[in-house]
Protein backbone atom coordinates (compact mmCIF):
# COMPACT_ATOMS: atom_id res chain seq x y z
CA UNK A 1 0.00 0.00 0.00
CA UNK A 2 1.14 3.54 -0.77
CA UNK A 3 -0.31 6.55 1.08
CA UNK A 4 -0.49 10.12 -0.11
CA UNK A 5 -1.92 13.01 1.90
CA UNK A 6 -3.23 16.36 0.70
CA UNK A 7 -2.00 18.96 3.19
CA UNK A 8 -3.92 21.67 1.39
CA UNK A 9 -7.30 20.15 2.10
CA UNK A 10 -6.42 18.76 5.56
CA UNK A 11 -8.68 20.24 8.27
CA UNK A 12 -6.45 19.13 11.16
CA UNK A 13 -9.17 16.90 12.57
CA UNK A 14 -6.69 14.43 14.01
CA UNK A 15 -8.83 11.43 13.09
CA UNK A 16 -5.95 9.79 11.24
CA UNK A 17 -3.71 10.09 14.29
CA UNK A 18 -6.42 8.63 16.49
CA UNK A 19 -6.88 5.71 14.08
CA UNK A 20 -3.24 5.04 13.08
CA UNK A 21 -0.82 6.86 15.40
CA UNK A 22 2.14 4.89 14.07
CA UNK A 23 1.59 6.19 10.55
CA UNK A 24 0.26 9.75 10.96
CA UNK A 25 1.23 12.70 13.09
CA UNK A 26 0.21 16.37 13.16
CA UNK A 27 2.22 19.60 12.93
CA UNK A 28 2.43 21.28 16.32
CA UNK A 29 1.35 24.75 15.26
CA UNK A 30 -1.70 24.09 13.10
CA UNK A 31 -2.41 20.38 13.35
CA UNK A 32 -1.93 19.66 9.65
CA UNK A 33 -1.21 16.02 8.88
CA UNK A 34 2.34 14.64 8.80
CA UNK A 35 2.75 11.35 6.99
CA UNK A 36 5.30 9.26 8.91
CA UNK A 37 5.28 6.20 6.66
CA UNK A 38 4.13 6.43 3.05
CA UNK A 39 4.40 2.65 2.77
CA UNK A 40 3.01 1.33 6.05
CA UNK A 41 3.87 -2.12 7.39
CA UNK A 42 1.31 -4.90 7.00
CA UNK A 43 0.24 -4.65 10.62
CA UNK A 44 -0.93 -1.07 10.08
CA UNK A 45 -3.00 -1.54 6.94
CA UNK A 46 -6.30 -1.92 8.70
CA UNK A 47 -5.71 1.19 10.82
CA UNK A 48 -4.68 3.15 7.75
CA UNK A 49 -7.80 2.13 5.83
CA UNK A 50 -9.90 3.25 8.77
CA UNK A 51 -8.00 6.56 8.92
CA UNK A 52 -8.69 7.19 5.24
CA UNK A 53 -12.32 6.28 5.69
CA UNK A 54 -12.97 8.62 8.63
CA UNK A 55 -10.82 11.55 7.46
CA UNK A 56 -13.36 14.41 7.47
CA UNK A 57 -11.57 16.15 4.59
CA UNK A 58 -11.02 13.03 2.46
CA UNK A 59 -7.36 14.11 2.39
CA UNK A 60 -5.84 10.61 2.57
CA UNK A 61 -5.45 8.58 -0.61
CA UNK A 62 -4.49 4.93 -0.66
CA UNK A 63 -3.01 2.95 -3.50
CA UNK A 64 -3.41 -0.67 -2.64
CA UNK A 65 -0.33 -2.61 -3.79
CA UNK A 66 -0.84 -5.22 -6.45
CA UNK A 67 0.60 -8.48 -5.19
CA UNK A 68 3.57 -8.61 -7.53
Amino acid sequence: MRITVDEGSCVSGGQCVAAAPAVFDQRDDDGVVILLHAEPPAGELENVRRAAQICPAAAIRLEEASTA
Partner: peptide
Protein backbone atom coordinates in the same frame (compact mmCIF):
# COMPACT_ATOMS: atom_id res chain seq x y z
CA UNK B 1 -12.36 29.13 7.26
CA UNK B 2 -9.22 27.08 6.90
CA UNK B 3 -6.99 29.99 7.99
CA UNK B 4 -9.04 30.62 11.13
CA UNK B 5 -9.45 26.95 11.96
CA UNK B 6 -5.72 26.30 11.71
CA UNK B 7 -5.09 29.02 14.30
CA UNK B 8 -6.58 26.82 16.99
CA UNK B 9 -6.28 23.24 15.75
CA UNK B 10 -2.82 22.69 17.20
CA UNK B 11 -4.39 23.11 20.65
CA UNK B 12 -7.00 20.40 20.08
CA UNK B 13 -4.92 17.61 18.54
CA UNK B 14 -5.05 14.20 20.24
CA UNK B 15 -1.49 14.65 21.53
Amino acid sequence: HQRLRRLVMGTFMPK
